[in-house]
């Protein structure tokens, strides 16, 4: 069955637009256009972000593995980004910093701009300037950026585990994190004023 369309197809932009709109709609429905909610993970009063993304991850993982099992999708045809260890760590840190300073991540800033939030529009502007600066100076840090690549590696391959066993453990970790964060959220909300 899958993939449903060829990446080189001219329709791919249209499909990307439709998927993008659906993604934005779901972000907005989950309340992710509010920077208070997003920053909540950092301050410990609201873990909806973590819960939504973790749920999305396990739903997609279970779904994809079932699809593969029934032969509906060819997992090897799915593009997986390469893992560059150094840039992933540095990039993750920078992204987290930007997230907590600005109150949005790239996707949610677009989402919040769409519903007219001025802070999100400024964030989006900064984001675009950042992209341009990154592009201009790319040759400077390309060696670091491309260094220590582990290829499109799978975590269960690195750990030498069966992927289904890994998925089961991952689901258990996700559920434990939901319980844990719900507990923290309650404790913090009791102590601090809710914004």
């Amino acid at each position: 069955m899958g993939p449903l369309f060829n990446a080189n197809d001219e329709w791919s932009f249209v499909i990307a637009l439709v998927i993008g709109i659906a993604f934005g709609f779901i972000l907005e429905s989950a309340g992710f256009s509010s920077s208070r909610k997003l920053a909540g993970v950092f301050y410990g009063y609201d873990f909806v972000v973590l819960q939504v993304f973790f749920t999305a991850a396990i739903t997609a993982a279970i779904g994809l593995l079932f699809f593969e099992y029934f032969g509906w999708i060819d997992l090897s045809a799915i593009w997986i980004n390469k893992f560059y260890v150094g840039s992933a760590i540095l990039g993750g840190g920078l992204m987290g910093l930007g997230f907590i300073i600005g109150g949005f991540c790239p996707g949610t800033s677009a989402c919040a701009s769409a519903i007219g939030k001025i802070d999100a529009m400024l964030f989006l502007g900064g984001f675009i300037i950042g992209v341009i600066i990154f592009d201009l100076f790319y040759p400077l840090y390309k060696p670091f950026y491309k260094a220590s690549s582990m290829g499109a590696s799978m975590i269960y391959d690195v750990l030498g585990m069966n992927k289904y066993v890994f998925l089961l453990l991952f689901v258990i970790v996700a559920i434990l994190s939901f319980v844990g964060t719900a507990y923290i959220q309650q404790r913090v909300s009791k102590k601090t004023k809710k914004y």
């Binding site: 739903t59 289904y164 998925l167 689901v171 559920i175």
Partner: peptide, 11 residues
């Protein structure tokens, strides 16, 4: 979720 993941392991 746990049931489905377990099913994948056992299939």
């Amino acid at each position: 979720f746990i049931g489905l993941a377990l099913l994948l392991v056992l299939l």
